[in-house]
Amino acid sequence: MTPSAARPRVLTLGETMALMRTEGIGSLAHAHHLALGIGGAESNLAIGLARAGIDVTWVSRVGADALGERVLREVRAEGVDVRAAVDPDAPTGLMIKAKPTSATTTVQYFRAGSAASRMSSADVPDELLAAASLLHVGGVTTLLSPGAAATVEDAVRRARAAGVAVSFDVNHRPSLAPPGGVREVYTRLAAGADVVFGGLEELALIAPEGTDPEDPEALLRALDAHLESLSPDDAGTGGRELVAKLGGDGAASLVDGHLTRHDGFTVPVVDTVGAGDAFVAGYLAARLTGADPAERLLRGNAHGALLCMSPGDWESAPRPADLQRFLDPDGDPVSR
């Protein structure tokens, strides 16, 4: 897909929850204080894109409660166009994050029956899709409820019909569903997408059985051939891009049959939750502004690295000046 000459706009949909996290290291059972914020894959992405200068609309539902008010206020404050219905009959979801040790993080979800699990296609009107350059969806939204899964699949179908590019991040949550139960829906979404993101284990969920999940190139090429054989006639707006998120080892992409790799950045890690969303935001921002595959990976890796360097799922998502300072090897770490 060639980015539109007009200013690109991304449309995304998914749940954002209130986020409670421990402020120190140790078991949640012994924590005395919790910091309150918000977090959710698609709003993390939306904020990252907005800070990178991309117009973005986020669609969701929240409860008629104080936590829902906080979610809407925080996301709007970051320059995101918020289209979220307030549901009087269901609560805003909640996640609790703790660091039992300096090297581990645990995340617990309380989102069954949440307002966002009641999303429907009516929450994604045709005019929002028609105004978008790209629709981004994630696998985690399909795990909220059958209705949410149907909403995501319908949005992808309508986007394809309208000639809108589609981005899909597998973004699997094992605590919400076993891997074996998601292969079919993830594969359908990937087959209808222009850009597919995932970690190696996530991409292996939709690759042909027997594909080596430890070999990024073999995995991407096998997955590309597999998805091509499954793609509906109206899928996509050009050649498919497959992107493997490799954590500290960087990332790799397969674009038009060409493999590109970019090493990760060595940074002091405080919290890795949200880094994958930041990577996708950086990659898509670069893609939408015409960058080549190597530059897309570079910016994705940089966004992810910066996110790892402070607590919170989105708070350290970079603005252009932050990114420039990070990528300048001779820059002064003190901003005066």
Rank of each mutant, 00 (worst) to 15 (best):
G93V: 09
L94H: 01
I96T: 13
I96E: 01
K97V: 15
A98Q: 14
K99A: 13
K99V: 10
K99R: 15
P100M: 01
P100F: 02
T101D: 10
S102Q: 15
A103C: 10
A103Q: 14
T104H: 13
T105Y: 03
T105E: 07
T106E: 14
T106W: 04
Y109L: 03
R111D: 03
R111K: 07
A112F: 04
A112M: 04
G113S: 05
G113K: 01
S114Y: 10
A115N: 13
A115V: 04
A115C: 08
A115H: 05
A116T: 01
A116W: 00
S117G: 13
R118T: 05
R118M: 10
R118P: 00
M119K: 05
M119C: 11
S121M: 06
A122M: 02
D123T: 02
V124R: 02
P125E: 07
D126C: 02
L129I: 13
A130G: 05
S133A: 11
S133R: 01
L134I: 13
L135T: 04
L135K: 02
L135E: 04
H136N: 13
H136D: 13
V137Y: 00
V137S: 02
G139R: 10
G139Q: 11
T141L: 07
T141M: 11
T142H: 02
T142P: 02
L143N: 12
S145D: 12
S145R: 08
S145P: 09
P146V: 00
P146A: 07
A148N: 00
A148W: 01
A148Q: 06
A150L: 06
A150E: 11
A150D: 12
A150F: 06
E153C: 09
D154F: 07
A155I: 01
A155T: 00
A155R: 03
A155L: 01
V156A: 03
V156I: 14
R157D: 02
R157V: 06
R157P: 07
R158K: 08
R158W: 09
A161K: 08
A162L: 15
A162P: 07
V164K: 09
V164G: 03
S167H: 04
F168I: 11
F168V: 06
D169F: 07
V170Y: 07
N171G: 03
R173A: 05
S175T: 14
A177P: 05
P178V: 10
P179K: 14
G180M: 10
G181M: 03
G181K: 06
V182K: 11
R183H: 12
R183I: 12
R183S: 12
E184P: 02
E184N: 05
V185F: 03
V185E: 03
V185A: 06
Y186D: 04
Y186E: 09
Y186L: 12
A190V: 00
A191P: 07
A193C: 05
A193I: 05
D194A: 10
V195M: 14
V196T: 06
F197M: 06
F197R: 07
F197Q: 07
G198E: 08
G198T: 08
G199E: 08
G199N: 14
L200R: 15
E201M: 14
E201I: 13
E202I: 10
E202Y: 09
A204K: 13
A204Q: 12
L205M: 15
L205I: 13
